[in-house]
Amino acid sequence: MRWDFASIFENTDALLVGAAGTLRIFAICLVLGLSLGLVIGLGRYARTRWLYIPATMFVEVFRNTPVLVQILWFYFALPILLPFEMSPLAAASLGISLNSAAFSAEIYRGGIQSIETGQWDGARALGMRWGQAMRRIILPQALKRMLPALTNRAIEIFKMSTLASAVAYVELLQQGKLIASLNYNPIEAYTAVAVIFFVFLWPLVQFSYFLERRLRRDE
C-alpha cells in the first residue's frame, strides 16, 4: 500500500474544527472535573457523615461504571427522566467531568491525608480556622505531592474527549472518522488524529515537569 496524506491536507479545515472541539471539551472537563474532585475529596475526608456518605457514594458510582456508558446514559436516558434536552457537548462533558471528579477526589484525599498532623497543629496553634489551614498550609503542600497524579488525570481527560464522538460531538476523532469515510483513507486519517493528539499532549507533559521543578524550590 501507499501512504497518501494529500487527502488529509485537503481536509485541514475539518481537522481544525475537530481540534477546536477537542480543546473546548478538554477545558470544560479539566476545570469541572478537577474542581468538583476537590470538593468531593474534601467530603471524603470529612468526619461529618452527611458529607462523607454522599461523597463516597459519588466516587463509587462513577469509578465503577465506564465513561462511555455514562456519556451514552446522559445523552439518551437522562432526557427521558428530566424535562430537558441534552446536547452532545453537555452529555459528554457531564460523563467525563463526573468520572474525572471521582478519580481526582481520591487523589486529593490521599494528598491531604499524606500531610503530617504537625502541620495542622502548627496552623491551628496560630489561630487559623479549618478553611484557612487547608488553603494556606495543607493544600499547597498536598498539591505539590499530587501534581504528577493530577497531570496524569489531565492527560487522561484529554484522551477521554474522544469518547464524545459516540454521541456525534464534533471533536478530533469524530472528524477523523468523517474524513476516513469520505475519502476511504482510515490509515492516514487515524494516523493524523494520533499525531495531533501527541502534538497537544507532549507540551502539556513538559509543562507539568516544569511545574514540579518549580514547586521543589523550597527543598
Binding site: G118, Q119, A125, Q132, R136, I137, P140
Partner: peptide
C-alpha cells in the same frame, strides 16, 4: 502561643513567611 517538639514549621514558606503567616492570615 505554642512551640512544638517537632517545630511544625511550614516547609513551603521561608523563615519570614512562617513568622508572617499568622499575622497575615489570622
Amino acid at each position: 502561643g505554642m512551640v512544638f517538639q517537632q517545630f511544625n514549621l511550614f516547609p513551603h514558606m521561608t523563615a519570614i513567611g512562617n513568622v508572617m503567616e499568622g499575622l497575615r492570615t489570622v
